[in-house]
């Protein structure tokens, strides 16, 4: 099984991210999503659509000033989660 990392640093591509996650799972890949910057605004949407299909976390430093907190199924983390995702992923895409 290959690992796909998705870095989300804008809030413009929610539908594309969900589409990629579903297709990747269908193809048997493991998916990790890390959200930062305006990407954290997608946390509720991605949590609802993908929490069963992907490991989700965001950078709390980005989330706090944007009023995002306590999103179910999403780890409130830091750049550490991003570093781990990039280190372990076979491929990384950015949305």
């Amino acid at each position: 099984m290959s690992k796909l990392g998705i870095l989300v640093n804008t809030d413009k591509y929610g539908d594309d991210i969900v589409g990629v996650v579903k297709a990747a799972r269908q193809a048997g890949h493991e998916v990790t999503i890390f959200m930062m910057d305006d990407g954290v605004l997608l946390a509720p949407e991605l949590s609802k659509a993908c929490s069963g299909d992907a490991q989700l976390s965001y950078c709390d430093h980005s989330a706090e000033p944007r009023g995002v907190k306590d999103v179910e199924g999403v780890t409130a983390g830091s750049q550490y989660q991003n570093a781990v995702m990039m280190h372990e992923a076979d491929r990384v895409v950015v949305f």
């Binding site: 640093n9 930062m36 910057d37 430093h61 980005s62 830091s78 750049q79 550490y80 991003n82 570093a83 781990v84 990039m86 280190h87």
Partner: peptide, 26 residues
Amino acid sequence: KKIAVIVTDRQSEALRMSLGLTIEGD
């Protein structure tokens, strides 16, 4: 791993992320 970060805008966040990516020794 070798990771290239391309910065075109939002420089501050891009640099903060770049620094964070070093945590796992990449």
